[in-house]
Write a protein that binds this DNA or RNA. Structure first.
Length: 466
RNA sequence: GUCCCCAUCGUCUAGCCUGGCCCAGGACACCGGCCUUUCACGCCGGCGACGCGGGUUCGAAUCCCGCUGGGGACGCCA
């Protein structure tokens, strides 16, 4: 029996939840679920000046929207200050950390000088062996790192990654204001929370040797590390707003389904043979780092869109309604207090779900069904609701009026009959009817529209235009 | 600049670990056709890749080295 697996997703609340972050969260979540382990959510808010409550809310909302539920947390590092202070003390008294009185300005200067000279811009160790403590001078606490040797990071995906300790420097553990910094808290928290696997973005790989040294200094066992590749934009640079939407919630607002987003992101770097479509259950069942590969992936909005279309088509109408409704309201198709039941809204979905790439599109296209008054497209009206069309529409009205059995079959045969009598193509009749009923030349199949509207409403709309 | 990671169609990827089944398979996009009451859906077909150079080997997309290219890190950010 193996030790229970425990992973975490640890975003910093300095903005919206980025889709790159979502994928990291997803891989953690899948790994945990696959192993029957635990998934912890931890908010890394040690940077007081950049962290915001709104951002935390947005992150939580994004996670909930995506269905990435967590077993523990959300923990907030600002609430764990005591633990960090204790650990800093521990290192200080063990001689594994020291106070540094260098000012940010001095450090900046040295950094840019080193950079200019072509050297690695690392701390020069000015205060490392300092024994005095200037009265009242602000200080940070630095880690007294080993100065030579190598650190071997064992990465689940990349194997052994070897770093020369000489490349590293004495990182700051605690700021002047007493708050801890990232590389330190991440080690303390991951240890204190018994995280067994640290799964995070590639961009953290070069932080890992420093963290390993901290694990050692604190006498913590190292967790297993897994660095997944990053997501790139079209031009292969780091994915950013320049490339389009990167916020999870923006995709929700654009009418994407969480299932589509999850499926898409899961396939970025991970695969299971040639399979493209995965239910959550399948994702959980099949997910393994054995089939995750390490090269960066370009975000492809077209493929996401294809998956979204797929899920719009295949999600049962009544399950789709909760996702669609907000868009119906936002696009003004329905009033906020429309009073319609889930079933009533769901009625329109079957004839629209093969014609909408997003829920926003679906909402817009369903206006003909939900709006009391037909809104006419002028071009459509002048092209199809002509004098020649009038007798056809009148015939249609007469036909419908006497139709007792209002079904797809009877509607179709009525159309066929008129077309035959008039000796014309179906399109000649269908288009005017379509415009009369929906106001536009583009709509679901005309029989579907009529069926959906019902006999009474159909007659009303036809009468309205003759 | 230094260090680290990465490298199969335009894009996501299978294959690579355990060389031959691969003159490289699937998907998205694109192009053409079919279906058709509009718009879509769907179906059929097409285009299209092992970055380059050296090895190793009877044989390399698969193993090794170099180069090139891309990405990341080098903060009192995370």
């Amino acid at each position: 029996m193996s030790v229970a697996i425990k992973v975490r997703f640890a975003p910093s609340p300095t903005g919206f939840l980025h889709i790159g972050g979502v994928r990291t969260a997803l891989f953690n979540w899948l790994f945990a679920k696959n192993h029957g382990g635990k998934f912890v959510l931890r908010i890394e808010d040690t940077d007081l000046s950049r962290s915001t409550e709104e951002s935390i809310e947005e992150i939580l909302e994004s996670m909930r929207w995506l269905g990435l539920d967590w077993d523990e947390g959300p923990f907030r590092q600002t609430e764990r200050q005591e633990i960090y202070s204790k650990k800093v003390e521990q290192l200080l008294s063990a001689g594994k950390a020291y106070h540094c009185y260098c000012t940010p300005e001095e450090l900046d200067r040295k950094r840019s000088e080193a950079q200019k000279a072509g050297n690695k811009p690392k701390y020069d160790g000015t205060c490392r062996e300092r024994s005095d403590s200037p009265e009242g001078a602000p200080s940070v606490v630095r880690f007294k790192a080993p100065i030579e040797g190598t650190v071997v990071v064992e990465d689940l995906l990349r194997g052994k990654v070897i770093f020369d300790i000489a490349e590293l420097d004495d990182l700051i553990l605690q700021r002047t204001d007493g708050t801890p910094t990232y590389n330190f808290v991440v080690v303390v928290d991951d240890s204190e929370m018994d995280i067994t696997h640290v799964i995070r973005g590639d961009d953290h790989l070069s932080n890992t040797p420093r963290q390993c040294l901290l694990y050692d200094a604190l006498d913590y066992p190292r967790p297993k590390f897994t660095h997944i590749s990053m997501i790139l934009g079209q031009d292969k640079s780091r994915l950013s707003k320049r490339h389009g939407a990167t916020s999870a919630l923006v995709y929700r607002d654009m009418g994407y389904l969480p299932d589509a987003m999850i499926n898409y992101l899961a396939r970025l770097g991970w695969s299971h043979g040639d399979q493209e479509i995965f239910s959550r259950e399948e994702l959980i069942k099949y997910f393994s780092f054995d089939s995750v590969h390490t090269s960066a992936a370009v975000f492809d909005a077209d493929k996401l869109s294809w998956l979204n279309e797929h899920y719009i088509k295949s999600t049962p109408p009544e399950e789709l309604v909760p996702h669609l409704e907000p868009h119906l309201i936002k696009t003004g198709v329905l009033e906020k207090d429309h009073g319609l039941s889930l079933q009533e809204i769901a009625r329109v979905i079957p004839c629209l779900n093969e014609r909408a790439k997003t829920l926003v599109e679906m909402a817009e296209k369903s206006a003909f069904f939900f709006k009391k008054e037909v809104e006419f497209d002028e071009k459509a009206r002048s092209k199809f609701l002509t004098e020649e069309a009038r007798p056809l529409l009148e015939k249609m009205i007469a036909g419908f009026s006497t139709l007792d059995d209002f079904s797809a079959e009877s509607i179709e045969s009525l159309f066929k009959k008129i077309v035959e009598e008039e000796g014309m193509k179906l399109g000649k009749l269908a288009q005017p009817v379509r415009v009369a009923l929906t106001g536009t030349t583009v709509s679901p199949g005309i029989y579907d529209v009529i069926l959906l509207l019902g006999k009474e409403e159909t007659l009303k709309r036809l009468q309205n235009v003759v």
